[in-house]
Design a protein around this nucleic acid. Structure first.
Length: 362
DNA sequence: AACGTCTGTCGCCTGTTAAA
DNA sequence: TTTAACAGGCGACAGACGTT
């Protein structure tokens, strides 16, 4: 078991590391006026860079200095394939920065790992921040991946979504209880603890939650396919209820929802956000099909994709035609006994399954 | 048939807020 | 003050699908 745990942390360290390579390295390169030509070239530059030097210090906040050092330190520990593709991405992003610089002069580029530069809103989605010589800022959300991969834009939870829009969770909870939770073996019986979860309280009351999670983990271990089936049912119920709520929204509310929650590229912000995506050694501005037109939406209809476990769709109607928004609802955590009664995924998340918007359907 | 790309499914980590 | 829950963000990977 111990081995498995350390496997997970190692795996996670890799993903943070992977992302950091594409964020930090282009900032360092730009601030040193370094033009990388190859992966080896880039590595050499990094190893000889003094992170305490003036140009390096432009590249991150003091608070992130040790994280920056760690990213470089770990570079030789990365799997060859990762370090290669990620540094190639970093080359593409560095070149993108130089192109941007030609259009409008840049004074520095800052890695926004945990600390953001002064003047940047705390929750800004940018990964790196560009300070132009005219003192204006631009946040860049970096993506890396396959040419057509779709990265989530809106990223929240079912219950959070309900609360944010002021929807009552009663119907959702009732449907989940009768169609999903009640069916976990042992849940509706009174145990030695004297607890019998109720439809009304099952997802709010801590004791009831813990009891339910305990039975669910037992079920998961005893019969994985039955547990999977229940999980799929849970997703189905959530999507069905979400669709009902979305379809009840007025057109004005719906447009407001997209504008405030969907992280669309918007002009006129204090610190605008653009999406830049690296594929191999090239990086380009990633278009956003919804942002320019969402205010002209005249109607919408949300529905479940019956061929998929987790996908649901929203058709939106525009004067010039129809667009389909791709949505996802899913668990974001696994089920493993050693996690105990908190932190379990799937049914263990109750009303807090993920809700994602992953872009306009092509 | 081999190979690269894409889609769908999966889930870990960190920071913040609420509860014990 | 410590622990649990919540919210938000990121990436990996298998199998299906296309292309050469």
């Amino acid at each position: 078991m111990k081995k498995f745990r350390s496997f997970l942390t190692e795996k996670r360290a890799d993903t943070t590391q992977n992302a950091s390579v594409t964020e930090l390295f282009p900032a360092l390169a730009f601030n040193h006026k370094f033009h990388p030509t190859s992966v080896e070239d880039f590595k050499k530059f990094l190893y000889k860079t003094n992170l305490k030097g003036v140009n390096a210090k432009k590249s991150f906040q003091v608070k992130d200095a040790s994280s920056a050092a760690l990213v470089i330190e770990r570079l030789p520990l990365m799997k060859e394939t990762f370090s290669k593709t990620k540094i190639e991405n970093a080359i593409g992003i560095t070149n993108y920065l130089y192109d941007l610089h030609d259009e409008k002069p840049i004074s520095k580029v800052v890695w926004g790992y945990r600390a953001k530069p002064k003047g940047i809103p705390k929750s800004h989605a940018g990964d790196i921040f560009v300070l132009f010589t005219d003192k204006s800022w631009l946040g860049i959300s970096l993506k890396a991946g396959a040419k057509k991969s779709r990265e989530p834009l809106y990223n929240t939870y079912v219950g959070t979504q309900y609360d944010k829009r002021g929807w009552s969770k009663d119907k959702l909870a009732k449907a989940l209880w009768t169609q999903v939770y009640k069916k976990i073996p042992g849940v509706t019986t009174v145990g030695e603890d004297g607890i019998k979860p109720t439809a009304k309280e099952f997802y709010k009351n801590t004791k009831q939650r813990k009891k339910i999670v305990g039975h669910y983990v037992d079920m998961f271990e005893a019969d994985q396919s039955a547990a999977d089936e229940l999980y799929h049912k849970q997703v189905k119920v959530c999507i069905t209820q979400l669709c009902k709520e979305v379809n009840k929204m007025s057109n004005a509310d719906f447009i407001d929802w997209l504008g405030s929650d969907f992280n669309l590229e918007k002009k006129g912000e204090k610190v605008p956000l653009i999406l830049v995506k690296a594929v191999g050694k090239t990086a380009d501005r990633k278009g956003d099909d919804l942002a320019p037109v969402y205010k002209t939406i005249t109607g919408h209809i949300a529905y479940r994709n019956k061929k998929s476990v987790q996908e649901w769709l929203i058709d939106v109607f525009l004067p010039e035609g129809k667009l389909t928004l791709t949505m996802v609802c899913r668990s974001d955590s696994g089920v493993r006994r050693e996690k105990g009664t908190s932190g379990q995924g799937r049914l263990g998340q109750f009303l807090q399954l993920k809700v994602l918007y992953t872009g306009v359907k092509k």
